[in-house]
Design a protein around this nucleic acid. Structure first.
Lengths: 347, 347
DNA sequence: TTGTAGGCGTTATCAG
DNA sequence: CTGATAACGCCTACAA
């Protein structure tokens, strides 16, 4: 069923049908009604591919996220809210997971595939591997999220990690913590690197000494967090408080703590990052630094839309993190020569 | 940059360029090389919209999931593995979240939108609201996942809930549990309804008495699970073991238990459903019924592909759940007249 | 206001 | 093996 067939049945030309579909006002109401009747009767729906071809606009955008994060609820929410924003503006979204682990240039591959599909723009929300983009020629509006490494003038959501870390560290400092540890994630990922840098700046601001031995560079996954926490606990003098690069790792860390009979919020202070829903349901509820996928996704789409439409005045795309206090922190405990050692069951 | 421009530069006709692109063997190797050189030089990539229009095949499929599940890692994995299977077969995927809560017919709306985009097929993985589809005319291959309510001959992944529930109930029965509770999710959702029915059949098979007072019909969300568990705990005689309609609700339930000083795996037996990664990281590790998003997504795509290609012999699309034993179960405790009452702190 | 004709970038069918 | 020419379904001057 196409526009010509509708035209035939309504005894008008196909251009008239086209006008009716596109709500061009100049059509005679009677004709319009006749056309609409036929359209409803046969259940006709225009072919967007053809329309896109003719108009040169696909009304489709791409979203690339990181495959490693498949089981991470953070990304599931990113996708949800991005799609919602897109649909609201009449866009459809093509999704793609970039396997940055085994294929360094996979992001570029995904973007290229989307370009062939004539997307009008693509949001790359991989949080840390987008440098790859700089290497290849991409001639479609792109937006990504990161801290401040301006990539060839590409638009990005500037993520300000400092406020969250500053308040978190301040909170720990008020408790008297002096040995603050960190589960860093892979520092090869730029967003992990930046989180780490922000933490150090926050510590400097709060005059808390930084000790690189208290940093465990682990995967930012459930298992990675557990592994990292075990590493810290095996230190001669473990930290009295630990921050994490994300909530998923923090939950893993909780597991490692529990395995040794250590309870966060009583024996050690633990702070996550992201503010996933699950934070409210861990035992104890996890204090964290909020990094709302909802707002982030909305900002990213907004930025992308402005790039696509070449809007002159641009929204300030800055996302500020903030500290969320729950129950997983406490004053330093048993800070003798052996640090936490006393409460740790021998493994 | 289009096929004609390439043709001009390579001094051939655009048909020849088309043949080169589509690797038609009959092209003179010399010409082919010349064309390829130009293509590489200018970085030309064919326009899929146009190709789709001409060929009548878009090489795009749609995936509709439930919006309510935004924060649920289960869906994030579904999307990931579906996309992976699709890309492997040269398909791109259009994603859509159906808001089944406020708009009962939203699934149909999403499918319709995708049809306008000429998707070759759509997978509706909403687990329980797909009945809506029956009401509207959809003339595109569709696959969904459900138990056994055959929908107008539409292809679906048959989910066999029984094996998982059977082994879970058997396990509890061996422990001597006679008061088994259930956090059911909304029974208006067909998949929730079917899980419930399967549980009852499993209980009958194991000769465990069924008591409808021990069923809490709650949301299948984090908060819903907590709420449901509180309801059960407030019963005059709470159950000694509780199964849940999904892991997310189970984690919520764990929270409610902890709030009253009750520990799963010691004071009460708790079993989830889905086998999300997080099950290994709760305290205690959550026994659950496996419902792998990975296999499910792969099966769904496989089925969709067969529908699209009208393959004569069809894969048997059955997914069998299975019980995964971890640490959250235990024998019934304090089963006096007051059930668990004794260990419950007054709220 | 309406219809005719041409074009969007491909593929596919013919002659040559 | 190659190159016109006509689709694919729609939009849009331009002319009537």
């Amino acid at each position: 069923m196409n526009i010509r067939e509708i035209a035939r049945r309504a005894r008008v030309s196909h251009s008239t049908v086209s006008r009716v579909i596109n709500e061009v006002q100049s059509v005679d109401p009677k004709l319009a009604r006749r056309v609409r009747a036929v359209i409803d009767e046969v259940g006709y729906r225009p072919n967007f591919q053809a329309r896109a071809l003719a108009r040169g606009r696909s009304h489709t955008v791409g979203l690339v996220v990181s495959e490693l994060s498949g089981g991470n609820p953070f990304f599931s929410e990113i996708i949800l809210y991005f799609e919602r924003a897109a649909v609201q503006q009449g866009y459809e979204v093509l999704i793609s997971f970039a396997d940055t682990e085994t294929q360094p240039d996979h992001i570029a591959v995904c973007v290229a595939r989307m370009q062939e599909r004539q997307v009008e723009g693509v949001a790359v929300l991989t949080f840390g591997m987008e440098e790859q983009l700089a290497k290849c020629a991409i001639d479609v509006p792109v937006v990504y999220a990161g801290a401040d490494h301006d990539l060839r003038g590409v638009r990005f959501v500037r993520i300000n990690y400092l406020p969250g870390f500053r308040d978190a560290v301040r909170h720990l400092a008020e408790f008297g913590h002096e040995r603050i540890g960190y589960l860093s994630g892979r520092l090869g990922w730029s967003s992990m690197r930046t989180r780490f840098d922000s933490l150090r700046r926050a510590m400097k601001l709060a005059s808390v000494p930084f000790d690189k031995d208290l940093v465990a560079e682990c995967d930012h996954t459930w298992d990675g967090g557990a592994e990292g926490m075990r590493t810290l606990l095996n230190l001669p003098k473990p930290p009295s408080a630990v921050l994490c690069c994300n909530d998923v790792a923090a939950v893993g860390a909780l597991k490692a703590l529990a395995a040794r009979g250590i309870q966060a919020g009583r024996d050690i202070a633990l702070i996550g990052f992201d503010d996933l829903t699950i934070c409210r349901f861990t035992q104890p509820a996890l204090s964290t630094i909020q990094f709302s996928p909802r707002e982030l996704a909305a900002l990213a789409f907004q930025g992308l839309l402005e790039e696509i439409q070449q809007t002159p005045k641009k929204t300030n795309l800055e996302y500020k993190t903030r500290f969320i206090l729950r129950d997983s922190t406490c004053p330093p405990r048993l800070l003798g020569a052996d640090g936490l050692r006393e409460v740790i069951r021998t493994p």
